[in-house]
Design a protein around this nucleic acid. Structure first.
Length: 426
RNA sequence: GGAGGGAUGGCCGAGAGGACGAAGGCGGUUGUCUUGAAAACAACUGUGGCAGUAAUGUCACCGGGGGUUCGAAUCCCUCUCCCUCCGCCA
């Protein structure tokens, strides 16, 4: 959520930002209009209330002085004012609701460093690391390798749970578990993150806090009877870890990491990427979430991105860092880098991490503040998050890039101790 | 799933239609006393909106939302969360 006061005072900048984002639906003009109405009503209502408060006080005094007649006369007048207040309140409720709804549908402002372009064509590759593997045979995509090695079972997955469902089996399931642990251990031991095990079903208001609701409910699963939503990423529950809190001086930055399943309907991409485990309804992901002071925001974004990149480097997987353009920026992000890993079998760059700085956009929605100094007024924190990393796609890259001519897979040495010396899958 | 009981300021806890933004205590800040500290005593001690350069004024806030009333922390409805007992359960 943006700061309504900033919006009031910076309308040209706001309009320009919305053009850059190519978000034609954002109801920012409506919000400003409603904000004006709201303040107008608020002032009218308060004036009447002031009158009523004084009158009521007087009625009490008159009764104590046994002047019932005067009191009753005054009562009638107050009753009238009461009716007027009710009318204004009703109108105010309507305007408030509409304003809140509009505010929740206005995207975050892009950082000045974000490349300006109407869509993903304008994304910019900032860096590329590593060499793409060369083969003296035709490398297979992971769905063929996985089936041959019986470490991914698509048929039975679909039978049990419908399209895009899969079982990881044996060495496949183990590889995912081991990678998850390895990622976590590195973030905990080397990058200063604290591991959390978060709720995977949350209330709707938590989804609003991170910006998944109200606009993107279509991509979420939910309970049919109760207000429970399945997280599409640990970002949701972990960001809400400090909802409605004021963090005291000295507590920032806070760094959390969690490995959770993620649930996504992928309604928008029906019929796309249907083969393999590239785009699935349920997948495991290690997610990092940071709460920091505003001045540290950009540095922390770099640290966060590096924390994810290091993992790919240690696995010796070629990757590139992509700066997301304004038109492709997610609703809540002010700046975002995607990390894409090369998958030799399907000959594609796969997004395995998205590192974003949200500034105070999420903090405002989830009401997460901090006190800059003892006794100072609370301010909104900056939040960031990034995958470190999304597992099935890392598994895809490992399988496809490290495949051998005979269809076996030889995993990189760094995983040796985590795999108990069993680096080969055959 | 059944039956009850709760939610009040940073914390504990009173308050049961009017003088209540809310007793009392704890904690905190400041002052007096003291070489210093402790103790004692005194004063102050919540958040947010709106208007204003400001001093300030005003409104709202007793878990959330609605209602009754001239007036609600207090009465009614509803939601959320917590606790106790019973049942079930990994």
């Amino acid at each position: 959520m943006l700061d309504i006061r900033w919006m009031r005072e910076n309308q040209p900048a706001l309009a320009e930002a919305m053009v850059k984002l190519n978000d034609v639906d954002a109801p920012w003009q409506l919000a400003l209009q409603l904000d004006g109405e709201r303040r107008n009503l608020l002032q009218q209502g308060e004036k009447l209330r002031e009158e009523r408060n004084a009158g009521s006080k007087q009625i009490g005094a008159l009764f104590r002085e046994k002047k019932a007649a005067e009191a009753n006369a005054l009562k009638q007048r107050m009753s009238q004012i009461g009716d007027e207040i009710s009318q204004i309140d009703e109108e105010l409720r309507r305007v408030d609701g509409a304003l809140h709804d509009a505010m929740m549908r206005i995207p975050n402002l892009p950082d000045p460093d974000v490349p300006v372009a109407p869509d993903e064509e304008g994304n910019v590759v900032l860096t590329q690391w590593g060499d793409m593997p060369k083969f003296d045979f035709t490398p297979l995509p992971h769905w063929d390798l996985g089936t041959q090695l019986d470490i991914i079972d698509f048929e039975r997955g679909v039978a049990a749970a419908g399209s895009r469902a899969y079982f990881l089996k044996g060495a496949g399931a183990r590889l995912q578990r081991v990678l998850s642990n390895w990622f976590l251990d590195i973030h905990i031991n080397e990058h200063g993150f604290t591991e959390v095990y978060p709720p995977m079903m949350v209330r709707g208001h938590a989804m609003e806090g991170t910006g998944n609701l109200p606009k993107f409910g279509d991509n979420l699963y939910r309970d049919a009877e109760e207000d429970y939503w399945f997280i599409p990423t640990a970002e949701v529950s972990v960001t809400n870890l400090h909802r409605d809190e004021i963090l005291e001086p000295g507590t920032l930055p806070l760094n959390y990491v969690a490995s959770t399943p993620c649930f996504r309907r992928e309604k928008m991409s029906a019929g796309k990427d249907v083969r393999g485990i590239k785009r699935v309804h349920q997948f495991q992901k290690v997610e990092m979430v940071k709460f920091v002071e505003p001045a540290a925001g950009r540095d922390e974004l770099e640290k966060l991105t590096r924390a994810a990149e290091v993992l790919l480097e240690r696995l010796d997987l070629p990757y590139r860092r992509v700066a997301i353009a304004t038109g492709d920026l997610s609703f809540v992000a002010s700046i975002k880098y995607d990390l894409e890993v090369w998958a030799a079998g399907c000959q594609e760059w796969l997004e395995v991490s998205s590192c974003s700085l949200f500034r105070d956009f999420q903090a405002r929605r989830a009401n997460i503040r901090y006190r800059p100094r003892e006794g100072a007024r609370p301010e909104f924190v900056y939040t960031l998050n990034g995958s470190g990393l999304a597992l099935p796609r890392v598994i895809i890259a490992l399988m496809e890039n490290y495949q051998q001519a005979d269809g076996s897979i030889k995993l990189p040495e760094v995983l040796d101790s985590y795999l108990g010396g069993e680096l080969e899958i055959r």
